[in-house]
Nucleic acid binder design. Structure first.
Length: 559
RNA sequence: UGGGGCGUCGUCAAAUGGUUAAGACACAGGGUUUUGGUCCCUGCAUUGGGGGUUCGAAUCCUCCCGCCCCAGCCA
């Protein structure tokens, strides 16, 4: 094996697809689908599935469908249909005209069910839920046949039609597949195919009062759409014999189900139910809270679709249980934003400095590079004046030995501006630093000295007169531990400092015109984007992710 | 203790019996730098355990250990 081969190694699903292509299995056709149930919001785990389903189709010149698996009206709603479509489009996938609903196939599914009955492969069962459970047996004991298992085809057909016409109340009867009550695979112990549910459906209204179960419906949906490779998560592995059974009984087009491991991420949770708990209990502001692993949350936080797609590519596809380090996701967004985000100056925790020898009232414009990683981004002019704000923690009166920012008597650089020296510290009556008196060297305009002398530190600043006020929301990981679910109660592991709101920030004026969601870098601080809560009067920025902070690391390693 | 699946670096993940077990993230150290950012360099595993087959095993056989999933008229 050469190194080039190693770099091109592919996952087991793509291996299957490539082999099928090579062998001409479906006439060289690749057709996949992403089949969400519209009962909640998409999260980054779904993004992994979407990138596998749709990404594979794209890579092999195939097609992909978006299909809503809406077979249970009790849990579903159009609200979710809309948000799911928005999120998938945002990720950058286009299913064109191939948008389908399981409910589109209800008639066809019903016909197939009658076929099953006619070949004595399904029967109407009158057992109650509790009785079914008793008859099913346990993991170690076989089940027993339902007393209704041997009804005649005629009776079954008659009963099924009456079920459909609404003659029987919810829960009184089911249509069951006649397979094997002693199967070691619980899924094969005469699973339910149809249940009675007198509930209005968001698309079919009251046309139906019986609804197909997942195992029966899903393989038919795939078959009807001519799906070649039906990828799903690993817990469906032992449903595959059932998937195959229905298609074999009906003798119709047979897609291949392939299972892969779900995504887990450190410091967060992926369970829809538990995320809902956070929303319902007000622990987060909503499904799109920037701390949520939902796609709407990540989007609001400032994650780009490109970064998420890059991430899903980097984590790979396999079958083993795994938990990906959140640091990888953070790396992906930093990597993307470093290349594309224009730089701005923002002082989050302002400390005023006065340049003693700079003429009062004078203002000059200095040239700033918009993005050192992208020459085409050009430059802009930024106003400089006598009174400025710098970051409070860029000054230490009694400095740490490795601190190389502003210190009394030490010269540092104001980025793209001048070399300054702190000559005096003004304090309030409590002894807190109120402002700094500095001097500047007029010969160092732009930040470099003609005599070639160097300074160790460069700090950012904004002009006090010109900067605009803003609120900045600093987000951190939602949980304090890598695996919140390992705790007795995951709620207890929520990070109380996952949101810090800073109200006195000052940003360079040009940043006020930014479009909501557009990513920027606040130099030396991190990547940010304007939040939709912003108004004309109130600018609000979300911190997507901080810059890598080796200074913080130095301080931490010292302890 | 039925059935199914899975165990390779701290975390993901390659390897398809054949030279020193890829790569990425993380971590540690160093260089460059007008962002303590970026970038560059260096370091970082003998494959869950035992036996066996073989000239040769992460790959094959065998026994053991561990983890995950399944007893919805949810998906």
């Amino acid at each position: 094996m050469t190194s080039a081969d190693k770099e091109n190694s592919i996952d087991f699903i793509r291996e299957i697809v490539e082999r099928d292509l090579r062998e001409g299995k479906h006439g060289g056709r690749v057709h996949t689908r992403f089949p969400p149930e519209p009962n909640g919001y998409l999260h980054i785990g779904h993004a992994k599935a979407i990138c596998i389903d749709f990404g594979i189709a794209e890579e092999y010149g195939g097609l992909y469908n978006l299909r809503f698996d809406d077979t249970n009206p009790v849990k579903e709603d159009v609200e979710y249909v809309d948000s799911i479509m928005r999120d998938i489009k945002w990720l950058g996938f286009d299913w064109e005209d191939r948008l389908y609903y399981a409910s589109d196939y209800f008639d066809k599914m019903y016909d197939y069910a009658e076929q099953l009955i006619e070949k004595d492969a399904a029967y109407i069962c009158d057992l109650s839920t509790d009785e079914v459970r008793e008859y099913r047996g346990t993991l170690t004991e076989p089940g027993r046949n339902s007393p209704w298992r041997n009804r005649s085809v005629e009776d079954n057909l008659d009963l099924f039609r009456r079920m459909r016409s609404g003659e029987f109340p919810d829960g009184t009867r089911t249509l069951r597949a006649k397979i094997d009550m002693a199967s070691p695979n619980m899924n094969m112990r005469d699973p339910a195919i149809y249940r009675i549910l007198k509930k209005s459906h968001h698309r079919t209204g009251n046309r139906w009062c019986i609804y197909p179960m997942y195992d029966y419906a899903h393989c038919l949906e795939d078959s009807i759409e001519g799906i070649t490779h039906s990828c799903c998560s690993i817990e469906f592995e032992d449903h595959r014999p059932l998937y195959d059974w229905f298609l074999d009984q009906l003798d119709i087009f047979h897609p291949q189900q392939i299972e892969f491991a779900r995504l887990n991420l450190t410091y967060t949770i992926m369970s829809k139910r538990k995320l809902a708990m956070l929303v319902e209990n007000g622990l987060v502001s909503g499904w799109d809270d920037p701390r949520m692993p939902t796609l709407s949350g990540l989007r609001r936080r400032g994650y780009t679709p490109e970064s998420i797609r890059d991430f899903t590519g980097r984590i790979g596809v396999a079958k083993r249980d795994s938990t990906v380090d959140m640091a990888l996701l953070e790396y992906c967004i930093r990597d993307d934003l470093n290349r594309r985000a224009p730089r701005f100056m923002a002082v989050l925790d302002p400390l005023k400095i006065i340049i003693e020898n700079y003429p009062p009232g004078k203002c000059e414009e200095l040239e700033f590079i918009n993005n050192p990683e992208d020459e085409s981004a050009g430059s802009r002019m930024v106003q400089f004046s006598r009174e400025l704000y710098i970051e409070r923690d860029d000054f230490q009166e009694e400095p740490h030995k490795k601190f190389r920012r502003l210190v009394p008597g030490r010269e540092v650089r104001l980025r793209y501006a001048y070399l300054i020296t702190c000559v005096d510290v003004v304090k309030d009556e409590d002894g807190n630093v109120k402002e700094l008196i500095c001097t500047y060297d007029p010969e160092t305009r732009g930040g470099s000295a003609p005599d070639g002398r160097k300074v160790k530190g460069t700090i950012h600043w904004v002009s006090a007169e010109h900067a605009v006020p803003a609120e900045v929301r600093l987000y951190d990981r939602l949980f304090t531990v890598e695996n919140p679910l390992s705790s007795d109660n995951f709620i207890d592991t929520i990070n109380n400092e996952s949101l810090r709101v800073l109200n006195r920030c000052r940003i360079e004026p040009s940043a006020a015109d930014l479009v909501i969601g557009e990513p920027v870098q606040f130099e030396r601080k991190g990547y940010f984007c304007k939040d939709p809560d912003s108004t004309e009067k109130r600018l609000i920025f979300n911190r997507t992710i901080s810059l890598r902070d080796t200074w913080k690391k130095i301080l931490k390693n010292q302890k």
